[in-house]
Design a protein around this nucleic acid. Structure first.
Lengths: 201, 201
DNA sequence: AAAAATTAGTTCCACAAGGAATTGACCAGC
DNA sequence: GCTGGTCAATTCCTTGTGGAACTAATTTTT
């Protein structure tokens, strides 16, 4: 079944690139996949939005297996795990802060939080100052989940970065930082007010 | 509101990375000036999975507005547009090829394709050689959609890349390419299979 | 000090998305 | 020419998501 799904969905190495990288070439099975390869290849490289295609591809290859694992291991949905993860990064924030930061809709978050409280991963207390707001904190159990999951998340990231040496990683990190910071900045003055909303980690 | 949350949780602005990258100093400065909400900041910079956080953030900021616009403008869902977009990049592929390449489930794609055919954006003909497979092609109308949408997609990408000069863009492109290609390659031999599948562009 | 506007969180509901099982076409092997 | 296995595409069904409307607490306005 493991074999199955690996075979089932997927793209694989690509030919045009192989030509210039004979080191990566490996055998007959590539041939059967050539056509598909070409298509995926085109989507990543012959695309007017190549940058977007790449980070979308990375996001896909990162999120899908990890959240799939989270689902299997802890039976937590992506949103739910994001809440836990968020609290691990900064404890004591409110649901709506997570909402605005992750762009999940409030109701989706509300549900997630309630389930997490049921499961005992998260505790909620009312903010003294503002009785509407509820401050969320991780419980022991919640912390344990993060502690178990985090290495896996960090591990896949490291795996992804494996082909880069240290200098290159620094460089990539810096370049992405520049882009991200600029978007951050521009966000504040977008007229359009209010991104429609969708998921993120 | 952004003001609000910034006030409530103070901005601890960090971090090892900034220190060794003086080029970004002004970025950090910019952040605090903008009173960027501290939590989002933490998620992006104080995160053991910083690389992942960044490309996820980019994907979010890219996809949400664009697909929101597509929905409004053409009343097409993300999957549906992905089909059109895929055909624009490489015409004449089959639904299942798009499926494997984008990791959308087949049934979701089937629905999307059927709707697109109804709407007249896509035409389908049976493959002469294999009567199971159906070759998809863009119609005039479909092409028109892409032609209208593409500049917007490319435009946002350019906007995102604006803070980088040409050399930096080259560099970023190259580094991401390295990572993507390695994943591309490694994918064929991933052990830990069962990838559930989710969206992508 | 009452009314209006804003904000946190929840509830309700319609619907889109994906897993599983199904149909029909193809390609073995014997 | 059958039989079993695979693959493309579709249909069915369950679930999760997110929009909109709602409650309650708070802030602002006049």
């Amino acid at each position: 079944m493991r074999e199955k799904s690996a075979r089932r969905l997927r793209l694989q190495h690509n030919d045009a690139f192989m030509v210039e990288n004979p080191a990566l070439e490996d055998g007959a099975e590539m041939l059967s996949r050539q056509r598909l390869d070409a298509f995926t290849h085109a989507r990543l490289w012959k695309n007017p939005c190549g940058f977007a295609a790449r980070f979308n591809y990375l996001a896909l290859r990162y999120n899908v297996p990890l959240y799939g694992w989270v689902k299997e291991r802890f039976d937590l949905s992506r949103v739910e795990f994001v809440v836990i993860y968020s609290l691990a990064i900064q404890d004591g924030v409110s649901a709506s802060e997570i909402a605005s930061s992750t762009a999940f809709p409030k109701n989706t978050l509300s549900r997630a939080v309630n389930r997490l409280i049921c499961l005992g991963y998260v505790a909620r207390r009312i903010d003294g100052g503002d009785r509407r707001a509820q401050i969320l904190t991780l419980t022991e159990a919640g912390r344990a989940v993060v502690d178990e999951a985090m290495p896996r998340f960090a591990g896949l990231e490291q795996e992804m970065l494996a082909p880069l040496n240290l200098v290159e990683r620094e460089m990539l990190s810096m370049l992405l930082a520049k882009v991200v910071l600029a978007m951050f900045h521009s966000e504040s003055q977008t007229e359009d007010g209010g991104v429609p909303s969708t998921e993120e980690m």
